[in-house]
Design a protein around this nucleic acid. Structure first.
Length: 209
DNA sequence: CCGAGGATTATCT
DNA sequence: GATAATCCTCGGA
């Protein structure tokens, strides 16, 4: 007899919603990573970005389907992990129904479980810099291209489960980060969501509010 | 504290 | 050949 219901991974049905809806609802949820040796690492999601549709000129799905971006057209709830700048892995969750290119980038975590192991993955980093950015959290949780297309609805090595609910009064939105020369209106589209005042929101995002 | 520039490589034009 | 959904270090104030 458990006194409390065990949290279950978010389902494909959840991820089938519009990427913007998924991005908002993921705030406060818990990203869980189980390492090959069984170590469990987790953190609360405090910053996300939505990339949706072939119209979105900031999205990898803006052009044709290619070997790299193909996961964005795939089943909702799978991981889309790609290498940025030849150096850093970015973790996304595929959103919206099959054949619609969309994903949500996980940009920052408030660390919960396995903080000592995360710090071992990022030697000599301050706690505040452990998971405050998409590449940082990928390093802390040992997320690499090996997890590309992994099914995040199964509770195996990587998934997201409900945890806290963040009220609208604490949610902030703004333009996405690092879009370079993406034209308007996509450059300024307020498709980034974060938890106001949370210290782990990525630095370049601006933590105002 | 802040801004500039380098690292490093898969991927696409 | 150019670019990229970033991070880190360094130099200057």
């Amino acid at each position: 007899m458990s006194l409390q219901l065990q949290a279950q991974p978010l389902t494909a049905e959840f991820y089938s919603q519009p990427a913007t809806t998924v991005a908002r609802k993921l705030l406060g949820a818990r990203l869980v990573r189980v390492l090959p040796d069984g170590t469990r690492l987790s953190g609360r999601i405090v910053e996300t970005e939505a990339y949706s549709g072939i119209d979105d000129l900031a999205s990898h799905g803006r052009h044709r389907r290619t070997p790299r971006n193909a996961p964005m057209w795939g089943a909702p709830g799978r991981a889309y992990v790609y290498l940025s700048r030849g150096l850093y892995w970015m973790l996304n969750v595929v959103a919206e129904p099959q054949d619609q290119p969309a994903a949500v980038l996980i940009r920052a975590l408030d660390p919960l479980e396995g903080i000592d192991v995360m710090q071992r993955h990022r030697p000599d980093r301050k706690l505040a810099e452990l998971t405050s950015g998409p590449a940082r959290l990928a390093l802390a949780l040992s997320v690499t291209g090996a997890l590309n297309t992994a099914d995040m609805t199964q509770g195996a090595e990587l998934w997201i489960e409900p945890d806290q609910t963040i009220p609208d009064s604490q949610v902030r939105t703004g333009p996405r980060i690092g879009l370079g020369k993406t034209p308007e209106p996509w450059l300024s589209m307020p498709w980034r969501w974060w938890v106001g005042g949370n210290p782990y929101v990525s630095a370049r995002s601006g933590k105002r509010g």
